[in-house]
Computed example of a mutant assay.
Amino acid sequence: MKGQGIISSFRHLRVGLLAIAGLIVLSGCSSTTSRVQTWDGNAENADQVAVLSAPGAIKVGEVNGKSMTSFLIDDLNVEYELLPGKNQIVFTYKTIWSKAQNVQDGESKVHVVETPRQVVTIDAEPGAVYRFDAPKPEDRQEALALVENFSVDLVNASGQTVATSSPWTAASTQVAATKTPVPESPSYTAPAASDAGTTLEQLKALWGKASEEEKRKFLGWAFD
Rank of each mutant, 00 (worst) to 15 (best):
G5M: 13
I6T: 04
I6H: 15
I7R: 15
S8G: 13
S8E: 10
S8P: 06
R11T: 11
R11L: 14
H12V: 07
H12M: 11
L13M: 11
R14D: 08
G16P: 05
L17P: 04
L18H: 03
A21M: 10
V25H: 01
G28R: 12
S30R: 04
T32W: 05
T32R: 07
R35H: 14
G41Y: 06
N45L: 14
D47I: 01
Q48D: 13
V49F: 00
V49D: 05
A50Q: 06
A50F: 14
A50S: 08
V51K: 10
V51Y: 07
L52S: 12
S53R: 11
S53L: 09
S53M: 13
S53Y: 05
G56N: 01
G56Q: 13
V63G: 00
N64Q: 08
M68I: 03
T69I: 02
T69V: 01
T69F: 02
T69P: 02
S70G: 03
F71N: 01
Y80W: 14
E81A: 13
P84A: 07
P84T: 07
K86D: 15
K86Y: 11
Q88R: 08
V90I: 12
V90D: 05
F91H: 01
T92Q: 03
T92V: 06
T92R: 07
W97A: 02
W97N: 11
W97C: 04
W97I: 04
S98C: 04
S98F: 15
S98P: 14
K99Q: 09
Q101E: 08
Q101K: 15
Q101T: 12
V103H: 11
D105E: 09
D105I: 06
G106R: 02
S108M: 08
K109R: 06
V112K: 13
T115N: 03
P116V: 15
R117P: 13
R117I: 14
V119R: 08
T121G: 10
D123P: 12
D123W: 11
E125D: 15
P126H: 11
A128W: 02
Y130A: 07
F132V: 09
F132E: 09
K136W: 05
K136P: 05
P137C: 08
E138I: 08
V147Q: 10
E148V: 13
N149T: 13
N149W: 08
V152F: 03
D153P: 05
D153F: 07
V155M: 13
N156T: 07
S158V: 06
G159Y: 07
Q160H: 09
A163Y: 08
T164Q: 10
S165Y: 03
T169C: 09
T169H: 10
A171F: 11
S172Q: 01
V175Q: 12
A176T: 11
T178M: 12
K179H: 07
K179D: 12
P181I: 00
E184N: 12
S185L: 01
P186N: 15
S187M: 14
S187A: 09
Y188R: 00
T189W: 00
A190M: 06
P191M: 01
P191G: 02
P191I: 00
D195W: 02
A196T: 00
A196R: 00
A196I: 00
T198K: 02
T199N: 09
E201R: 03
E201S: 04
Q202W: 10
K204G: 06
L206E: 04
G208F: 05
S211R: 01
S211K: 00
E212G: 02
E213P: 04
E213G: 05
K215H: 02
K217E: 15
G220V: 11
G220K: 07
A222M: 07
